[in-house]
């Protein structure tokens, strides 16, 4: 593996509520340039909290209590992501890391056209661009994600769910970031639409060379699209490895259980599982 683009080192996030909960527990992950890293886990395992931590979008009561996140583009000096604030953070977010969240297609503003919502990114981050340049870029972006540019003048409700999600991906791509964090980007979509969007992401990745942190509960899907996969359980990263390795030789009991939970469509009957009990002690911040 080449030098990592993003390295998450021993990251710990807690929710400082009446009964504090450790949502992310000493997690370390490295993502190389151009790589798709898949993070699997069930609801409440902390995978979304991790995504929010990486993009510095955590809101109180969630708090990063330990660890570091370093950003190292093209052999430049490492950047301490947790140390960024104000303008630096705004410049970093979206220009370097962008995100597509679950249900993002419902995040489009219903009263503005697709064009103006894409152009907004340039208005905010590339104020040097002229109006014509912005228009041209918006058109180009939409074509990149496989939508006819005549939809630039459409309003969100005139597009299907899959198309809206593509628009969100276009917006995430707008500033050519090196990493896109995708949290369940296709969960709300039908399986056929999901597949076309995944194909699209894969194609764009090889064309543009960005890395992806892809988060979903659907391990089967993750194994298909990811280069490497991490499995989260109760805030801990219990296993990580190449997709092949996780698929063929899972080491952790929980990974094995999750794999059994996804019967192969065209393969043989699965060994139906029993409930997985997390035997490790309950997570309490010490």
């Amino acid at each position: 593996m080449s030098a990592p683009l993003l390295s998450i080192d021993d990251l710990t996030v807690e929710y400082r509520t009446a009964r504090p909960v450790r949502a992310v527990d000493h997690v370390s992950i490295e993502i190389a340039p151009g790589e798709i890293f898949g993070l699997a886990g069930e609801s409440g395992c902390g995978k979304s909290t991790l995504a929010y931590a990486v993009t510095r979008l955590l809101q109180p009561p969630a708090e990063i209590v330990g660890g570091a996140i370093r950003w190292t583009p093209d052999g430049a000096d490492p950047l301490d992501v947790l140390g960024l604030d104000g303008r630096e953070l705004r410049a970093f977010r979206w220009s370097e890391i962008s995100m597509v969240f679950q249900g993002a297609m419902n995040a489009l503003n219903p009263v503005h056209t697709v064009r103006s919502q894409i152009e907004d990114v340039f208005v905010d981050h590339r104020s040097g661009l002229s109006r014509t340049e912005r228009r041209a870029r918006a058109e180009e972006l939409l074509a990149t994600v496989g939508i006819d540019p005549r939809h630039l003048t459409s309003y969100p409700h005139e597009l299907s769910g899959g198309m809206r999600q593509r628009v969100m991906i276009a917006i995430a791509l707008a500033l050519r970031p090196r990493l896109i964090v995708m949290d369940e980007p296709t969960t709300a979509l039908d399986v056929v639409v999901q597949r076309t969007i995944l194909d699209e992401i894969d194609r764009l990745r090889s064309e543009l060379g960005f890395a992806v942190l892809f988060i979903t509960h659907d391990l089967g899907l993750l194994l298909e699209i990811s280069d490497r996969v991490g499995i989260m359980l109760s805030g801990r990263l219990v296993e990580q490895g190449s997709s092949r390795q996780i698929q063929d030789a899972p080491r952790h009991d929980y990974t094995q259980h999750l794999l059994r939970s996804f019967p192969s469509l065209r393969g043989d009957m699965p060994a139906t599982g029993t409930r997985y009990v997390d035997r490790e002690p309950e997570r309490r911040p010490s």
């Binding site: 597949r195 659907d218 089967g220 899907l221 298909e224 997709s243 698929q247 996804f262 192969s264 065209r266």
Partner: peptide, 25 residues
């Protein structure tokens, strides 16, 4: 139906479903 899908829509569904353990459909 799953192993020899004939209708285009069924084929599309079978192709779209994640199945890392089997070869591509």
């Amino acid at each position: 139906v799953i192993l020899t899908p004939v209708h285009p829509y069924t084929q599309l569904l079978v192709r779209a479903a994640p199945d890392p353990a089997s070869g591509p459909f």
